[in-house]
Amino acid sequence: MTKDVESLQRASLRNPIRVSISKTSHQTVKTLLQSWLLIPQKNKDLYLIHLLNDLTGHPTIVFSRTVHETQRLAFLLRALGFGAIPLHGQLSQSARLGALNKFKAKSRDILVATDVAARGLDIPSVDCVINYDLPGESKTYVHRVGRTARAGKSGKAISLVTQYDAELFQRLERALDIRMPQESPEKAEVMLLKVRVEEAQRVAVRQLRDEQERKSGKGRGQGMRKGKLLGRGGGRGGREDMDREEV
């Protein structure tokens, strides 16, 4: 409230009641078990797969920072036999609803998502949230992990922290005023997954490239069909319109 508004209030109101709400930090619920893993960046996929193997049968949301990484992770998990489905802002509304409904109906037990799924979604049963990529703000973190441990139920949130995320993670703990326990899986056990995961990574990259090529090819095809349609009118104007469309 500015000084001008306060002056206006004094001049125009009689015996007003003023209600002030102090700014409070975002907090997580007590029924949420939070932990983190310190891992090398190059082994991030390995540790994710190790965690998901232990969570088999438990509905889990994996949060990633970008659309590209979300799509890649979905392809990676499918190549390894997981029931994963992506959810991000570049999907059509019908595709987003379809992905969400499959996850809610438990025909897919892993939802790989950007922050489009961090708030405003009613998903009653989520056992675990994994932060594959750490969010940049504590508010976003609270919204993400708030997808689990709802309505008094317990839930689990695990964050993957690489050597590049240490400072960001420390800021997150300070903002939330908590100290999360660290998990330390056996490295030898995790590395047993290396060969299978590397092959699945190659499959995911190919599928991602094929998908991008299909989309770009579809766009070019639509442009050419549109140009031919405009050119049917004959004459110079039709030819110029077609040239512009093809470009």
Rank of each mutant, 00 (worst) to 15 (best):
90 Q>F: 00
69 E>W: 00
150 R>N: 06
110 I>A: 11
18 R>Q: 13
103 F>P: 07
26 H>N: 08
89 G>Q: 10
19 V>M: 14
142 V>S: 12
94 S>E: 00
54 D>N: 06
143 H>I: 03
145 V>G: 04
109 D>P: 01
78 R>A: 11
52 L>T: 06
31 T>P: 12
152 G>I: 15
29 V>L: 08
146 G>Y: 06
53 N>V: 04
22 S>F: 01
126 V>W: 05
77 L>D: 11
144 R>A: 11
93 Q>N: 15
128 C>W: 00
140 T>D: 13
20 S>L: 02
77 L>P: 09
61 I>A: 13
131 N>S: 14
137 E>Y: 08
35 S>I: 04
50 H>A: 10
94 S>W: 00
112 V>L: 04
81 G>S: 12
126 V>D: 09
79 A>W: 05
94 S>H: 03
96 R>P: 12
72 R>V: 05
102 K>L: 06
148 T>G: 12
76 L>T: 10
147 R>K: 04
97 L>H: 07
115 D>I: 04
72 R>M: 02
33 L>V: 10
112 V>W: 06
51 L>R: 00
116 V>I: 01
120 G>T: 05
35 S>D: 05
104 K>R: 12
147 R>P: 04
119 R>K: 00
139 K>E: 15
105 A>N: 03
129 V>M: 11
81 G>Q: 09
152 G>F: 14
74 A>H: 02
148 T>F: 03
27 Q>A: 11
145 V>K: 03
144 R>S: 02
149 A>T: 15
81 G>C: 14
25 S>Y: 07
145 V>P: 10
121 L>P: 01
115 D>W: 15
105 A>L: 01
58 H>M: 13
89 G>S: 14
36 W>C: 13
48 L>T: 01
61 I>V: 10
58 H>S: 13
27 Q>H: 07
86 P>A: 09
130 I>A: 04
26 H>Q: 03
37 L>H: 02
63 F>S: 07
91 L>Q: 15
61 I>E: 12
42 K>Y: 08
83 G>C: 08
96 R>L: 14
20 S>K: 10
140 T>E: 08
149 A>Y: 14
66 T>L: 05
27 Q>T: 00
130 I>Q: 07
44 K>V: 00
152 G>S: 13
22 S>D: 01
62 V>Q: 06
52 L>A: 03
32 L>E: 03
103 F>Y: 11
147 R>Y: 02
59 P>M: 08
67 V>S: 00
28 T>C: 12
133 D>G: 01
103 F>I: 11
85 I>C: 11
150 R>Y: 07
104 K>C: 02
118 A>F: 09
92 S>V: 09
143 H>F: 06
81 G>T: 08
60 T>I: 10
87 L>A: 03
79 A>F: 07
49 I>R: 06
117 A>P: 04
103 F>C: 12
102 K>D: 03
35 S>E: 10
66 T>P: 07
119 R>L: 02
21 I>A: 05
33 L>T: 13
78 R>D: 14
56 T>Y: 13
15 N>M: 15
107 S>E: 10
53 N>R: 08
104 K>G: 02
130 I>S: 02
63 F>H: 06
94 S>V: 09
33 L>M: 01
39 I>M: 09
14 R>A: 12
46 L>D: 10
83 G>Y: 04
87 L>Q: 05
18 R>A: 10
83 G>E: 11
29 V>F: 05
143 H>M: 05
